[in-house]
């Protein structure tokens, strides 16, 4: 039972669903952003493009929706590495428009990936740059998306004194621990696709409230695959598991990691690689978990694959969705 719910224009480069799956933002080569709405407000049956606006002169490479506690807003990363935020505002019921609310300052490095994390106190934005830098920004006023403050800046390395040359990163992938909840610590996982092995491997970063700094608390790589470039990472929702689940896609395949929920005596989290899934031909573009954290979807040139663990805890391919053309 196939049904087309949206037809995307030629030149569409990326897309992103909002939190409820009732709106889709798509972006194109010419820097235009489209917002699709489901025609019936409470269903997700068919979609029409209700708003279209120019974000940038060049191509847009990634769109990320902000969490719903901060309104209907998206962040756009453009091919030249600029990062801007746009939000939907309305004076009256009919006067809905999208306004640019922030353009982040240009830096020597281009923005490769960003992700938003909701902590108990505020909204955080992690951005990974092509020179290997990682920046964390904080929103100062929850009702005003124009005011951001740089909270931290670091590199994706375990040992902060390690020395290496100038990094050149092609892509980066960030995923926040998706769990909402009071008292939840801020943590995210990050990996690079670069020419510096130390930067590449996925690290779990956690904010140390006592010393007000970000610390790497786990590294998701075995000694053999430490050098591998990371294409995508995804932190699974945890609805009650005693451990966290994180998937990491590299040239070897997709590895599934169990990560301890609480730090051990040395402050680190225990990690265990439980599966290495192969099946995709070529680079994995993106990975996404379902809301229960039991099914992983991965996409590559050859289509989308769904992965699950069976009753014996063995991960396997559950389904394949192949591109039609």
């Amino acid at each position: 039972m196939d049904e087309v719910i949206i037809s995307l224009e030629k030149g569409t480069t990326c897309s992103s669903w909002n939190y409820s799956g009732h709106r889709l933002a798509t972006a194109s080569l010419d820097g235009t952003l489209c917002i699709f709405h489901s025609t019936h407000p409470s269903s997700s049956s068919s979609f029409t493009c209700t708003t279209k606006f120019k974000v940038h002169e060049g191509s847009i490479v990634k769109i990320v929706w902000l969490p719903p506690d901060y309104g209907d807003a998206v962040a756009c990363i453009c091919a030249d590495g600029t990062l801007s935020l746009w939000e939907e505002v309305a004076e009256g019921i009919d006067n809905i428009q999208w306004k640019q609310c922030k353009v982040f300052d240009k830096t020597p490095g281009q923005v490769l990936d960003i992700q938003f994390g909701v902590s108990a106190l505020n909204l955080k934005l992690v951005a990974a740059y092509s020179d290997g830098q990682v920046k964390v920004f904080e929103l100062l006023d929850p009702l005003d998306l124009t005011k951001w403050q740089l909270q931290a800046e670091f590199r994706n390395v375990i040992d902060s004194v390690s020395k290496f040359g100038k990094a050149s990163c092609v892509t980066a992938s960030i995923s926040w621990n998706p769990q909402r909840g009071n008292g939840q610590q801020s943590n995210f996982v990050l990996g690079f696709n670069s020419d510096i092995p130390q930067l590449n491997s996925c690290k779990v970063w956690e904010f140390d409230e006592d010393h007000q700094r970000w610390l790497p608390v786990a590294e998701l790589a075995t000694p053999e695959d430490k050098v591998n470039q990371v294409y995508a990472v995804a932190w699974a929702p945890n609805i009650g598991r005693p451990y966290e689940l994180i998937s990491v896609a590299t040239s070897d395949g997709i590895s599934i990691w169990h990560v301890g929920s609480n730090p051990e005596i040395d402050g680190r989290l225990w990690v265990e690689k439980v599966a290495l899934l192969s099946g995709h031909c070529g680079e994995v573009w993106q990975m996404e978990w379902d809301m229960s954290g039991m099914t992983l979807a991965s996409s590559a040139d050859d289509g989308v694959r769904l992965w699950q663990s069976n009753l014996k805890g063995v991960w396997h391919e559950q389904a394949t969705l192949e591109p039609t053309t």
Partner: peptide, 22 residues
């Protein structure tokens, strides 16, 4: 008993609550 509430939470956070009925 173990994961029901966690799942319920995630279901709620995916509801389009800008629609008043929902």
């Amino acid at each position: 008993p173990k994961q029901g509430m966690g799942m319920l939470e995630n279901i709620f956070y995916r509801q389009p609550v800008q629609h008043k009925k929902v």
